[in-house]
């Protein structure tokens, strides 16, 4: 079936290019969803076609629009840079080479007002679809098409089953699961995409589990 009729007739979007504007806006939304804090400054490191054509395609405005919560079909995207300025968010664009990644890739380095920083790498892979490549250096693989959680926890035996047991108990189906670690015995990160969504109670239960350091809830975009 592929993407079905609406993969052909759609998405509704701000032009001129599904990769350069719709996908870019969704990357901005994904960043917003991951950071979940008031943002002070963002530097977008643009790679490949993003670096070469971002001005003429409005990729800069789409990335910032998404970051400000605008959907890919939001007509305010064209004015997003002004909106960010008004909200006193500092935005920088830097052309760079991120190495062996998709031609439409960006690294967003985001500093929140609370002083925390995050680095998010994502690619716009065509038709408005995106792929989150990494968060803070940890490999990730997220499409934004499902609700997801990112769990930071100790790298030790049985952590994944503790988490997935809670999914089973709450009758939530897992779409995809990935896990990787910094170093043996130190911090690991588990990323789970799901059908449906987690209740606040379940999120609390997961975050209270021993050896789990943090849980971020990422809404589908």
């Amino acid at each position: 079936m592929g993407r079905g009729l609406f993969g052909i007739l759609g998405p509704p979007m701000i032009g001129p290019s599904s990769s350069h504007t719709a996908g870019a806006a969704r990357i901005g939304l994904m960043c917003r969803s991951i950071v979940q804090a008031d943002i002070a400054e963002v530097t977008f490191f643009l790679h490949g076609s993003f670096a070469n054509t971002y001005k003429g395609h409005g990729t800069d405005r789409a990335l910032v629009g998404g970051l400000m919560g605008m959907q890919p079909d939001d007509e305010r995207i064209i004015r997003s840079l002004d909106v960010a300025k008004k909200e006193k968010i500092k935005i920088n664009f830097v052309k760079t080479d991120l190495g062996n990644v998709h031609p439409n890739t960006v690294e967003a380095v985001i500093t929140s007002k609370n002083g925390e920083t995050a680095s998010i790498v994502a690619s716009s892979i065509g038709g408005g679809e995106i792929n989150l490549v990494s968060i803070n250096g940890f490999h990730a693989d997220l499409s934004g098409n499902y609700n997801a959680i990112i769990v930071r926890h100790k790298d030790k035996v049985g952590m994944i089953s503790k988490i997935t047991n809670m999914f089973e108990k709450n009758n939530i189906n897992i779409v995809s699961l990935s896990n990787n670690r910094e170093k043996k015995g130190q911090t690991a990160i588990t990323i789970i995409e799901m059908d449906g969504e987690l209740s606040p109670n379940m999120l609390t239960d997961i975050s209270k589990t021993a050896d789990i350091y943090s849980v971020s809830n990422i809404n589908k975009i």
């Binding site: 052909i8 007739l9 759609g10 979007m13 701000i14 001129p16």
Partner: peptide, 10 residues
């Protein structure tokens, strides 16, 4: 940068 529908592309 106005609003359109990709059909099949922008």
């Amino acid at each position: 940068m106005g609003k359109i529908v990709a059909a099949p592309t922008a």
